[in-house]
């Protein structure tokens, strides 16, 4: 991967591995699904706006799950909404990732104790890759979460499956 970051000083030939190139392509252009549920959605909008720009990371919002790579679950997941989230996750094409943003999506948040209609964590219905804590997380925290997701994608090996 280091080779891709170096300047092309010795002609236009570059030696790398297929895994690295595929992972680099995938992580540099993570299209997020526009899926804001509650308060964290406002911070997600602020992260996408001009002050804390997400476009410089290659991420912008698509409305349809079929065109998205990452689903940022921003906000409280209720029991009524959980089946719809599962449907949306199933509609995303692989490779797909889930970033759980905020306390409510991580574990139920401030509504954990007496919330009879709150799902205590979105990982009870879909698999989550990165958890971003906060209530709501600052835009910098969400960007850190996305960068951690990119780290995770960078280490993925698609051609040679690892046993661990």
């Amino acid at each position: 991967m280091g080779l891709l970051n170096q300047r092309f000083e010795n002609g236009n030939v570059l030696l790398t591995s297929v895994d690295d190139v595929l992972a680099w392509g995938r992580l540099s252009s993570l299209w997020a699904m526009q899926f804001g549920l509650a308060c964290c959605a406002i911070e997600m909008m602020a992260t996408g706006a001009s002050h804390y720009d997400l476009d410089r990371f290659g991420t912008f919002f698509r409305s349809s799950p079929r065109q998205a790579d990452v689903m940022i679950v921003a906000g409280t997941v209720t029991l009524k909404m959980a089946s719809r989230i599962k449907t949306l996750y199933d509609q995303m094409a692989e490779p797909r990732y889930v970033l759980s943003m905020g306390s409510c999506a991580n574990c139920g948040g401030p509504y954990w104790e007496h919330g009879y209609h709150v799902l205590k964590g979105v990982d009870r219905v879909i698999p989550v890759d990165v958890y971003v804590p906060g209530c709501p997380p600052r835009p910098e925290a969400l960007m850190e979460g996305l960068l951690k997701l990119k780290e995770k994608i960078r280490k993925e090996r698609l051609i040679l499956k690892q046993t661990a």
Partner: peptide, 14 residues
Amino acid sequence: IGYLHRCFEKHCEH
């Protein structure tokens, strides 16, 4: 509606 019903009134009582 009801997709974001977060049981606010029940929390207040407790």
